[in-house]
């Protein structure tokens, strides 16, 4: 059987989600954002909730997320996505509402909005891409930048005496009574991608079940900011990011 024979709709096993638009994504080659976008689109498609889902895009690399997933979107001011999502969900309780935020957006400028939305137990899903750097503005230090890690604003490496420590914001959010599910995932391998997708689905389901806030952190790469190839970035992430941001569920009120 030749390749030409195999390429037949009857044999299709993997393809781009229909909810992903035809717009080519603006992300750098190999960026983790693309994989997370795909997973969110796949889950919305599989749950058949396109007409009920509203996304809130951040400021940062994912500012144009609304160009890639075919649902209604709002584009928030920097860090304010959880405030927008709070109102969208409270005013339209039958909708699935999620925010998509990076580390600078969620864990620096938007810390108050993040913590208080979670503390109120807003029935929203928060998808948090943590690549330990400000990608959009050109690779500056983020709250989650690792100790010793070099960025444009800590060129000698993050010095904890000067810059404080990598902020484990998800651990903090797991402590809040308003969150029902806080998990840390990654998207560099097929197996981890499958797990990450399950976490996204669970977060969406929790939001409609009225259980409280779900937070899915994706420990991610920024190969441009890290100045490595995408493949080397994945390796570097596994060796350096995972010890500080270990994968797995930090909280799941279902499993008491």
């Amino acid at each position: 059987m030749t390749t030409k024979d195999i390429i037949n709709p009857a044999n299709l096993v993997y393809s781009k989600a229909k909810l992903m638009t035809e717009n080519p994504m603006h992300y750098c080659p190999g960026c983790s954002h693309g994989v997370v976008h795909k997973l969110i689109a796949e889950v919305i498609e599989e749950m058949d909730i396109q007409d009920k889902t509203i996304g809130v895009a951040p400021v940062g690399c994912a500012v144009f997320a609304y160009n890639y997933i075919d649902i209604d979107w709002q584009e928030a001011a920097h860090g304010r996505a959880p405030a927008l999502a709070t109102a969208i969900k409270r005013l339209q309780p039958d909708k699935f509402v999620f925010t998509y935020q990076g580390d600078g957006d969620l864990a620096a400028i938007g810390t108050a909005e993040t913590i208080h939305a979670c503390n109120r137990g807003e029935n929203i899903a928060i998808f948090f891409v943590n690549n330990a750097i400000y990608g959009m503005t050109g690779g500056q230090m983020a709250p989650t930048t690792l100790e010793g890690m070099k960025t444009a604003t800590c060129p000698m490496g993050r010095n904890t005496e000067l810059n404080g420590y990598p902020l484990k914001i998800s651990n903090l959010l797991a402590e809040l009574d308003g969150t029902c599910y806080v998990t840390r995932q990654s998207v560099q391998k097929m197996a981890s991608i499958v797990r990450a997708k399950k976490a996204i689905r669970k977060a969406f389901e929790n939001s409609m079940a009225g259980k409280g806030t779900s937070v899915v952190e994706f420990v991610s790469t920024c190969n441009s900011g890290w100045k490595m190839s995408p493949h080397d970035s994945n390796k570097w992430m596994e060796e350096n990011m995972f010890p500080v941001y270990p994968l797995g569920d930090l909280k799941d009120t279902e499993k008491k």
Binding site: I54, A76, A83, T86, I88, E113
Partner: peptide, 19 residues
């Protein structure tokens, strides 16, 4: 809703107005 700050309150208005 009582927000955590004026910043959050106006951004809740932004979200609600967008709907």
């Amino acid at each position: 809703l009582q927000a955590e700050s004026e910043v959050a309150a106006i951004n809740m208005v932004y979200g609600g107005a967008g709907c």
